[in-house]
Each structure stands twice: as C-alpha cells, then as structure tokens.
Design a protein around this nucleic acid. Structure first.
Lengths: 119, 119
DNA sequence: CTCCTTGTACGAATTTTTTCGAACTTAACA
DNA sequence: TGTTAAGTTCGAAAAAATTCGTACAAGGAG
C-alpha cells in the first residue's frame, strides 16, 4: 500500500486548486477569512503542527459536517491564506506562508500566537 | 470662539466612550472589524494623517449617511481598534496604537501599509 | 429662545455569511 | 465488482452584518 506521505512536494505533487496570485491578495479579504474562530484555528494548527506533509480536512478532528468544513477551507483558499492539493481522495492543505509574509509581514506570526477563546 | 484643538489631551479630556480593556481584545474580533474596506480606510487615515488632535466622524468626508458611519465607528470602538471621546457635539476618534501593538504587534503597521482597492 | 450642527437610536429592508442535510463523485482496495 | 472513505455540490434555512431613513438629543452661536 502506498503511503501518501512518500510523495515528494513539490516534485510530482498535484497542481494546487485554483487560488489567487500573490499579487492579488487583498488585506481586507485575508482579514475577513481569518476573522472566524474555526478558520483561525485551522490556520494556527497548520502553522504550529506543520509536519512533513500537509494535513487533510479530517486531520483536525472538527465535530462539524463535512459540507461545513468544505465551506471554511474554501474560504481560506479563495482568500489566498492556504493552498490545497488533491491527492487521490484526500485534499491536503498548508498555509501560504511565503506569500503571506511577502504581502502582509507579521500577520502569520499573529495567527500563530493567537489564544483561542476559553469558554 | 473656542478652538476644540486647544483642549489638551489627556488633561481635561472627556472620558473615552465604553471600550474593551486591552486584555480583552480578541484577534478574531479585531480582524473582523478591519475586514471592511470602509473601516480599514478609517483606521488607515487615522494612522497616517494623525494630527495634533483626533478626528471627527465628518473629517473623513465619506459620502454615506450619518447613521451608517455611526455603525462603522462603533464597530471599530467595540472591537477595541479605536478610542472615541465626546467633545461637545463632536465625537473624536483615534487608533489605540499602544494597545494594538501590545497585543497584536505589527497589525497596525499592516493597516498603515494597506493599498485600497482601485476599482 | 431659536436655529444649526454633530451625531445617536431605532427599526426595517437588504445583503452576506454560516450551517448543514442530502445526493453525488471519485479513488482505493479487498 | 462492489464497498468504503474523503470530500464536493446544491439548495435552503437560519443567523449575522450592512445600509439607511426617520426621529431624536444636545451643544454652540446668534
């Protein structure tokens, strides 16, 4: 059986799903995408628990319907915050750190340092 | 006639309108407040065109009904982005730069460097 | 006092976002 | 081939944000 993590990135990696170019990133759009606690947690965990390979939707263990998660991941991707690639059945995501740092320096660091609401 | 700008700040300045304490600032709330282009412009101009005194609502010259502007300024104040003081008839605003820098370092700089949509 | 100005409060209409069920697609695998 | 698993798409309902008219309050100037 093939371990998906053995596939190197970017060599042989599938093309990313449609996403805005770095130069088209809009601060107001990115901030809007990050203003949701669930999406903020997604991005933070992608930043802090970065591993040798990107994470799938299900890796986060959110107790939400899959259609809701699709909505939030797409919001992040269309804002340019994350990049998604399709590996077989799985869609793996990672933060576009370089692009964010280039356009909005310090923003990713703020997300990484975020303290989720306690309640 | 009394020039309002002769009133020193903070000596003799009115108390700020109700606002969240610096420790209660929430990143997701602040980002949400900043995700609106009009509010982003308000904050940017407050940062860049800071003068000897805070600016009134009308100083910006927005072509919007006053009730709409009240809504946006209140959103910024309740998120903790701006501080508002009442001087007679006028309500003057300034960015809580120290508090923002303390809690979310670099965020105000991103707003200051923002390029408004050209459309 | 009366008028003018700055801005709020309220409420309603509109728009946007969020949520999620149900049906579907596709790859992997036995 | 048939089943399972990951995730999408569609659509509709619910929730939230936005817009803005009208009425109102209150300070300042004459």
């Amino acid at each position: 059986m093939l371990d998906i993590r053995e596939i190197p990135v970017p060599d042989g990696a599938p093309e990313p799903l449609p996403e805005p170019d770095v130069d088209d990133l809009r601060l107001e759009t990115v901030l809007g995408a990050l203003s949701d606690p669930l999406r903020l947690e997604i991005v933070q965990r992608l930043l802090l628990e970065r591993e040798d390979f990107d994470h799938t939707c299900g890796w986060f263990g959110f107790d939400r319907p899959k259609s809701s998660l699709t909505h939030h991941f797409r919001a992040l991707r269309e804002a340019g915050v994350i990049r998604q690639r399709q590996y077989g059945l799985e869609r793996r995501s990672h933060v576009r750190t370089d692009d964010l740092d280039a356009r909005f320096p310090g923003l990713a660091a703020l997300v990484a340092a975020w303290t989720p609401p306690t309640d």
